[in-house]
Measured scan of single mutants.
Amino acid sequence: VNVKKLKVSELKEELKKRRLSDKGLKAELMERLQAALDDEE
């Protein structure tokens, strides 16, 4: 998943799939999702 190419709605969906908070600004969502993806690898 390329975090930078996702829309806010898509970021929120990806975060929900991982049971993460989907609250906050786009930058925060991107950071949170990227951290989750880094952990998965």
Rank of each mutant, 00 (worst) to 15 (best):
K12G: 10
K23E: 15
V3H: 15
L6K: 02
L29S: 10
E28Q: 11
K12V: 06
E14R: 01
L6S: 01
Q34N: 08
E28D: 11
E40W: 01
R32M: 02
E40S: 09
S9A: 10
D38S: 12
E41S: 11
K16T: 13
L20I: 15
E31G: 14
L37V: 15
N2H: 13
L37A: 07
V1L: 04
K4M: 14
E31V: 08
K16C: 08
K26H: 11
A35V: 09
E14T: 00
K7E: 15
V8G: 07
K26W: 07
K4E: 15
D38C: 12
S9G: 11
K23V: 14
N2A: 10
E41W: 12
D39Y: 14
E14I: 01
E41C: 15
L33T: 07
A36W: 04
M30E: 11
V1G: 04
K17M: 13
E28F: 00
K7H: 12
V8T: 11
D22K: 03
D39H: 07
V1T: 08
E31I: 06
G24C: 00
E28K: 03
S9C: 11
L37G: 07
S21D: 08
D38E: 01
E41H: 09
E14H: 05
L29V: 06
S21A: 06
A36K: 06
K26M: 14
K16P: 01
A35L: 14
L15F: 00
R18W: 00
L20N: 04
L15E: 03
D38F: 06
L37P: 09
E31H: 14
S21P: 11
K7T: 14
L20R: 05
A27K: 15
L29A: 08
K7S: 15
D39N: 08
E13N: 02
S21Q: 05
L20H: 04
E41R: 15
S21L: 05
S9F: 01
A27N: 12
R18E: 03
D22C: 13
K5D: 09
E40M: 03
L11R: 00
S21W: 02
G24L: 00
V8C: 06
A27Q: 12
R18D: 04
Q34H: 07
K12F: 00
K26V: 13
K7G: 14
G24V: 01
L37K: 04
E28L: 01
K17T: 07
L6E: 02
D38G: 09
L29T: 11
D38R: 11
M30S: 05
K26Y: 10
D22G: 08
K17P: 01
E13T: 08
D39E: 14
V8P: 11
A35W: 05
E13Q: 13
K4S: 13
M30N: 04
A27V: 13
L15S: 00
L15D: 02
A27G: 15
K12R: 14
L20W: 00
D38V: 09
E10K: 02
K7D: 13
G24D: 02
S21N: 07
E10G: 04
R18A: 03
K7A: 14
D39R: 12
L20E: 06
V3C: 10
G24E: 01
V1M: 13
A35Y: 06
L25V: 14
E13W: 05
K26N: 05
L37Y: 02
V8K: 06
V8Q: 09
E40K: 07
K16V: 14
E14M: 09
K17Q: 12
L29I: 03
L37S: 04
N2T: 12
K5T: 12
L11M: 11
K23H: 14
E13V: 09
V1F: 12
V8W: 07
E14A: 07
E13R: 09
G24S: 01
D22S: 12
N2I: 06
A36E: 06
D22R: 10
V3W: 05
L20G: 02
K5I: 06
V8A: 11
D39F: 05
R19E: 12
V3L: 10
V3G: 04
R18T: 02
K17S: 10
N2S: 08
R19D: 14
R19G: 13
D39T: 13
N2Y: 03
V8Y: 05
Q34S: 11
V1S: 15
K4L: 09
E41V: 11
E31T: 15
L6N: 00
L29E: 12
E28S: 07
N2W: 10
L33A: 05
K5P: 04
D39M: 08
E40F: 00
L25T: 13
S9V: 10
K16W: 04
R18S: 03
L15R: 00
A35S: 12
K5G: 12
V3E: 05
K5L: 11
L33Y: 05
L15P: 02
M30G: 05
L20M: 10
L25H: 14
K5Y: 11
V8H: 08
E40V: 04
K5F: 09
G24H: 02
D39G: 12
N2M: 12
G24M: 00
L11E: 02
Q34C: 04
V1Q: 05
L33P: 11
L33D: 04
K4Y: 07
V3T: 08
L33H: 08
A36H: 03
R19W: 05
Q34P: 06
A36C: 06
E10V: 06
L25W: 03
G24R: 00
D22P: 12
E31A: 15
A36P: 03
S9P: 07
E41M: 13
L20C: 04
